[in-house]
Each structure stands twice: as C-alpha cells, then as structure tokens.
C-alpha cells in the first residue's frame, strides 16, 4: 500500500485524475452556456450576451449565484433523503468518467469490465431522481420521479441490448480495447468503425440514450408544461445545480460511449510534429463527442415532447424487439463468417 502511494505511477495517476476531473467540470459548466446559446440561436434570440464577451463568463456567474442562493428545504420533506438525493444523482454520473478513454493514455484506469461498469454506475443515477422526487413530499416531484423511473428502466433494456451486437464484433468489455479494435481501415480509406457494421444498434442506442438522460423529446420527467419542473421542483441553490450537473454529465457520458463504441473513440488521422500527435487523439475524441452534444441540443430545440403512452409503447414495442432482432442477425452473420 505504502509503495503504491509513493510510487511515480501514483503521481501520474493523480495528475490524470485532476486533469480529467477539472476538464470535465469545466466542460459541464460551459455546456450550459453552449445549450443556452444554441437554443437561443435556433429561436432567433441572441442568448446570454451580458456577462463577458459572447456571455462566456455566464457559467461562472451562474455558479456563484447558485452558491449564494437560499437553500430551501420544505418542512414536510424527508430531510436526510432530500439532502442526499443530489449527491446520489451526481456521484454516479461523474464516476463513469474514471474509465472513459479521452486519448491513448488519457484514461484514469482501463477496467476489463469498463463498459459494464459504466452501465452499472449510470443506472444508479435513477436513485437520485426517484429519491429526490419522493423525499420532497410534494405532488409534482413525485409524479416526475415515478414517470422518470419507469421511463429510464424501460429504455435501459434496449440500451443494454443494443450494445450486445457491438460486443459480439469487438469481443471485449474494456473501453480502450474497444477503441483500438476500430483503429485500422477497410480498403485504406474507410475507417473500421462499428457504425458501418451495426447501424441498427447505433440508432437504437442513440434513441435509448436520449431517453435515459431524460432529455427532450423524452423529458417526461421534467415536462415543464404539466409538472412545473418535474422531480426537482422543490430544489433550489446548489442542490438544483447538482441535478443540472448530473444531467449534463450523463449527456457527455452517453455521447462518449457512442463515440467509443460506434465511431472509433480517439482514432483519427495523425499528422504533424510529435507534440501535435500526442494531442490529436484527444482532439478527435472531443470533436466526435461535441458533434453528439450539438445533436442533443438541436434535437431539444426542434422536436416536440412525446406523450407518455407513446413513449412507453415506443420503448417496449419498437426498440426492444428491434434490438433483439439485431442480436440474432448479428450473431448469425458472425457465426457464418
């Protein structure tokens, strides 16, 4: 134990942890700015412009404001669970970043069960929403929480099943190995990405991922027009900020997973001097992830919300059979080849 803590590997590890944690927290803060700005442009508004150039200091101002706001705890709430829920929501959402490879060496740890670890951990996030909604002891949060739980577990099925097709091709659960398996090319030009082999799985994954993160058009848990603010109606100040952070963290996690599983992770063309070559994989990875995030925000700005029965029918009667069929077809093709 002592040797482990004092070794040079440990120092490298701590540097990696702080770089990734700092980077992720900064990215999550600026995601709120990006979302507001993009949504505003879609709706022909300027968005945040007052704080700093292009409103770029807005996330910092928001963070400070969250810190100084009154922390209201409703009298009839279940105090302990009410306070614990934001942490229960935030911790699993951030914990999945400990296994995501941002580059060939920019990964905190490469677990042999990395993918399973992320699925296990992110599905714990549902407790944050369910407990937060229940502990508030108010009607809107309760409805939002129940809706959200049912929705998340329904789409969790197709999410996990859609991944099985990719696993059959890659034969590994380690995220770093998933990326390296897609490194080469077909015919020298087409990258060996799983999207070309598993298009159906990708579509199922993408749709379920949007539903898993409770984003529009699947944000029945929040649906402002009916439920005020859904499960976090009673939350204010830093606790509300933590729910927001958790939501953005989940968006980044599912986008990163989509990039790793279907779009070759950090692989991409390499050129230039050695220093540039070290940075390029991370640049490619972040570029691919940000394309997904753009897609998420644009979808929020353009697609109307589902009705609850449509949502459940779509999850159970369309996505689930589709992902099962994909497994059967893929296993057949892999078996004969």
């Amino acid at each position: 134990m002592i040797e482990y803590v004092t070794g040079s590997e440990f120092i490298v590890l701590m540097i990696k942890i702080f770089v990734i944690f700092g980077g992720v927290m900064g990215a999550l803060a600026y995601l709120s700015w990006l979302e507001r700005k993009l949504m505003a442009r879609v709706q022909m508004r300027p968005g945040p412009t007052r704080v700093g150039p292009f409103g770029l200091l807005q996330p910092i101002a928001d963070g400070l404001k969250f810190l100084f706001k009154e922390d209201v705890i409703p009298t009839h709430s279940n105090r302990f669970l009410y306070i614990a829920a934001p942490i229960v929501s935030l911790v699993p959402a951030l914990l999945s970043f400990s296994v995501i490879p941002f580059g060939p060496s920019l990964q905190i740890t490469d677990l042999s069960v990395g993918l399973l670890f992320i699925f296990a951990v992110t599905s714990l996030g549902i407790y944050g929403i369910a407990l937060g909604g229940w502990a508030s002891n108010s009607k809107y949060p309760l409805m939002g929480a129940i809706r959200s739980s049912a929705q998340m577990i329904s789409y969790e099925l197709s999410l996990t099943l859609s991944v099985v097709g990719v696993l059959m091709i890659a034969n590994t659960l380690s995220l770093a190995e998933l990326v390296t398996a897609q490194q080469s090319t077909w015919l020298g030009i087409i990258p060996r990405w799983n999207i070309f082999l598993q298009p159906v799985a990708f579509v199922v994954y993408l749709v379920s991922a949007v539903a898993e993160t409770n984003r529009l058009p699947f944000d029945l848990a929040e649906s402002e027009q009916e439920l005020v603010a859904g499960w976090h109606t009673e939350y204010s100040s830093m606790k509300f900020a933590m729910f927001m952070l958790a939501e953005y963290a989940n968006v980044v996690t599912v986008s990163s997973l989509a990039t790793i599983m279907f779009f070759g992770g950090w692989t991409g063309p390499m050129f230039g001097p050695a220093l540039l070559q070290m940075a390029l994989p991370t640049v490619w990875f972040l570029l691919k992830v940000s394309i997904f995030i753009f897609f998420y925000v644009l979808m929020r700005a353009t697609v109307p919300r589902f009705r609850y029965d449509q949502l459940m029918r779509f999850g159970w009667k369309v996505l689930l059979p589709l992902s099962l069929a994909n497994i059967v077809v893929t296993s057949f093709v892999v078996a004969i080849s």
Binding site: I17, L67, K69, D71, I83, I87, V91, I108
Partner: peptide
Amino acid sequence: KWAPVLIFFILVVGFGVVSLIGSYIFGVK
C-alpha cells in the same frame, strides 16, 4: 486497476459534500 476508481469516487463525493456545505455557509437564510 480499481484503486483509481476509488480515488475518483472519494474526489467526486468530496466535491458534492463541499458544494453542499458551501451553499449552506454562503446561502441566505
């Protein structure tokens, strides 16, 4: 393999708890 996950877990929980305490100290009542 797993120790980094534990360290990261402690860091994340610490972040959550510290920001809650921060909002308790600085928030209006």
